[in-house]
Design a protein around this nucleic acid. Structure first.
Lengths: 144, 144
DNA sequence: TTCAATTACATAGGTTTCCTATGTAACATG
DNA sequence: CATGTTACATAGGAAACCTATGTAATTGAA
């Protein structure tokens, strides 16, 4: 069917290609702003500074600065000066942010639940594997 | 650790979040233009029209028009009028396009191979599962 | 046939998302 | 205390998309 030099190499490429497709599809259908990623990060890593957040999200520091400003603007997070280091900030998820995270997860959950329903050869374990792979690819060390 | 309403719902969200992070990380590190996705599509689906390509890539038709123009510009594809329908075009992958696809796959392959190497609990089968999940989520029907 | 949808694509114009470059103030260190 | 480093902000711009809309070809119904 398609050119197949080595199966795993092709898979690696497809992972990225499909990931990109997924992201755009979700953004179009659910109209989620890019900053919801950071809400998820904050939930996972608790209150952190901006540069650290940028590292975790693999984006530049100015991008994260602007993202945090938007989060604060929407009331999903607060930004306070770091008491231990006057240069730094501490970004914290608000209750509204947590509510938004729950809402997003519900939306995504519904969509994927529907998939798993009419896709007999995929289950939640496969989903967990997929997330683990994406997470794994992003672990430090892959940043050449 | 984090709020956990229902495991699978959280996973569904994480899939999207991590996918977005992966895409940006790859674009930053490898500096691949977005249009490489379409090269992959053309390899998979053979010569097709622009609107169909847009459907397959889950993007808008104008976005695909512009993407194809870029592909032609780089010599990775050709755009010819459809002989059966004067409105339509037929976009075809060139040899240069196939070469580029091979190059990209090699780059991604190296990166993921490194991951699999120092990540004992992940193997190529997991990778295949991840791709299958992403592909599955994108199948028609998920477009509400 | 003819004329009104529909379809395939192009163009215009704008928004979101993200980046590099650079400045500023606070810390760290010799 | 001078110098380098770190945390963040700001400026400016580029890439990637989108909606709205126009045009020409095709289909379909009267």
């Amino acid at each position: 069917m398609t050119t197949s030099p080595a199966r795993d190499v092709e898979l690696a490429s497809d992972l990225v290609v499909h990931a990109a497709r997924l992201v755009r599809a979700v953004r179009r259908e659910l109209e989620l702003p890019a900053i919801v990623r950071i809400v998820s990060l904050l939930d996972e890593h608790g209150p952190v500074g901006i540069s650290r957040l940028a590292e975790l999200d693999r984006c530049s520091q100015p991008t994260m600065s602007s993202a945090v400003a938007q989060l604060v603007d929407r009331g999903w997070a607060t930004k306070a000066p770091n008491p231990d280091d006057a240069r730094g900030s501490v970004v914290t998820l608000t209750d509204a942010g947590r509510a938004e995270l729950a809402r997003i997860r519900r939306l995504n959950g519904e969509r994927v639940a529907a998939l798993v329903a009419d896709h007999p050869d995929l289950d939640n374990e496969d989903l967990a594997t997929a997330v683990a792979v994406l997470r794994g690819v992003l672990q430090k060390g892959s940043t050449s």
